[in-house]
Structures are given as C-alpha cells and as structure tokens.
Write a protein that binds this DNA or RNA. Structure first.
Lengths: 140, 140
DNA sequence: ATGACTGCAAAGACTTTGCATCTTT
DNA sequence: AAAGATGCAAAGTCTTTGCAGTCAT
C-alpha cells in the first residue's frame, strides 16, 4: 500500500532552494534561506522534507561536514571535494570513479553495491591562500 | 611550541581496541569494549583520544553512519563498503581510486587535495539475504 | 471528510567541554 | 612541582518526534 503524496507549497519551496544552489546546503541553511519569504516555516519541516526527497530519489546526502548533514539535488553520478578548513563542498562534474569498480566490488566481495561515492578532501583555493598568509605572517 | 605528549594507560588501551578490530567502531563501541577491564573509563576520554589519534595520524574517520562517527586505525589508502541496512563498514583492501584522479582534480580545479575517499554503499551479504526473505515471505 | 502536511516545542542522540583530581615526567 | 590526562556531569549541537491544527484532494 503506497502512501499518497500531496502537493505542498513548503515542500516545493524547499526543493527549489535545494535545486537552485550549488553549495550542498545543510537543513539549517535551507531554513534560513526560506525564512524571509516563509516566516512560518519550521525547521522540522525542512528535515522532514529532506528525508522525503531522499526517499523519493529527488536528493541525496553528501555526508556530514562539521557535524551537519549536507544535501545535493543532483542525483546523477559525480564526485565531490570537501574543504577541511571551511567546509565548502564542491561538485567535480568531470571526475568519476572507474566505472568498472562497482562491478568489481560486487563480484569480489559478494556485496550488493548500490552506489559509489568518490570524495576528495583538502583545502579550497581560498583557504589555501589564507594558509599561505599564515605562514608568511604568523599570529604576532 | 609543541604541546608535550605523555603516556597514558587508557590511551594505549583505546588505541589497541581500535587496532585489533576491523569493525570500524564508533566511540561508544570502543567504550563498551573497554568498560569491563577499565570500569573507571569515561566516554569523554574515548572521544578525546579518538580526536588525538586523528590529529596525530594514528587513525582516521570513515564518516558518520546512522548518526555515529566511525573510526579506522588503518590510515593507508583503501576503500570502504557501508551497508545501508545494518551499518556494517567493511574494508576493500584491493580497491583503489585511480591514482591519477587526485592529481587530475588538483590540476583541473585549483584545489589542494590532501586525501581521497572511495566508498561503496549497498547491502552486505547478510542483509541482502534477509531482504530476499522479505520478498519471499512478506510480513503477513 | 479524509488523511497528508505543518508548526511548535519537547525529547533524543551524539559529542564537546569545564573543572577538580589524578598521573606522568 | 609542572603540566598533561582523566572522570564526571553539564552543556552544546544537530536531528527526530508527538500532537494538535491546517491544507490538499
């Protein structure tokens, strides 16, 4: 028995925000974006809808960065870069894991692989530069 | 000015537990393992030492699974499989991301890539079988 | 009218932290 | 004796949930 799905203005607005940004936001970020136009929006509703989107394949989690789960409305395969310093998450649209790996893992380890995530960690260009500055001008 | 590091029985015990398991445990799991032999151990100490190990390159985080951060004392490059059903984390010692990718990302996107994680998600063999059972014998 | 969706606030879960005490050096 | 490490418990964050009211169908 499928549970019926109904239209909701808030849900639509939440999905729009998620689709119109490329910052891979947290629930809180989405909430703050919508607050001005939807003063009665509740953070709980944002969480509930993000879960809904994941369950329906409209969004996916990029993982937890600095304690907050981050979401992505792009569900086609692509990789991510996460800055260890500021937490920025970037898409790497041209980088894919070797397509044979998924099958290779399934075969070698007797696992039902559904998804594969390739994630790079390091410093984004902005944090990289600041780190350079620190080296040149250490705190007093 | 480097902060001095002192020996500690608890720290050693925590690292041993982490090294002697391949389950990629959470802080709580490590704590429960040590409780019998170290009744006065505190969960806070486990968290503090796991952070210490990460800062000193003795361990790394595998990510957050079902709300709990999971740790690994193996810091050499290898990939992981995470079961979406039971949360089991497995090493895939023979699976590596294409070694050229890291440089490729650094070059193409002007990022200082430090680390690369390749993670597969799906059902482990045990959960896979149970799912099969559900299909054959749906709940009443 | 039914039942899905939401706001609100409380509860829950995980992790961090302040401070007094204990240990290592 | 000095300073790092720990226990304990409180506090902090992020997320989930119960319930009454609202809205879509």
């Amino acid at each position: 028995m499928e549970r019926a799905v109904r239209y909701s203005k808030k849900r639509e607005a939440i999905l729009s925000v998620l689709r119109e940004t490329n910052c891979h936001p947290s629930a809180e970020w989405v909430y703050q974006q919508l607050k001005p136009r939807h003063p009665d929006l509740s953070l709980g509703t944002v969480y509930r809808n993000l879960a809904f989107f994941q369950a329906h394949g409209l969004a996916q989690s990029v993982g937890v960065v600095s304690g907050q789960e981050r979401f992505d409305a792009i569900v086609t395969p692509h990789s991510h870069f996460i800055c260890n310093c500021c937490g920025t998450v970037l898409d790497l649209p041209e980088i894919f894991p070797d397509s044979g790996l998924k099958q290779s893992v399934s075969a070698q380890y007797e696992l039902a692989v559904q998804r594969c995530e390739l994630t790079f960690y390091g410093l984004c260009s902005s944090c990289s530069q600041e780190n350079q500055n620190f080296k040149e001008e250490p705190l007093s």
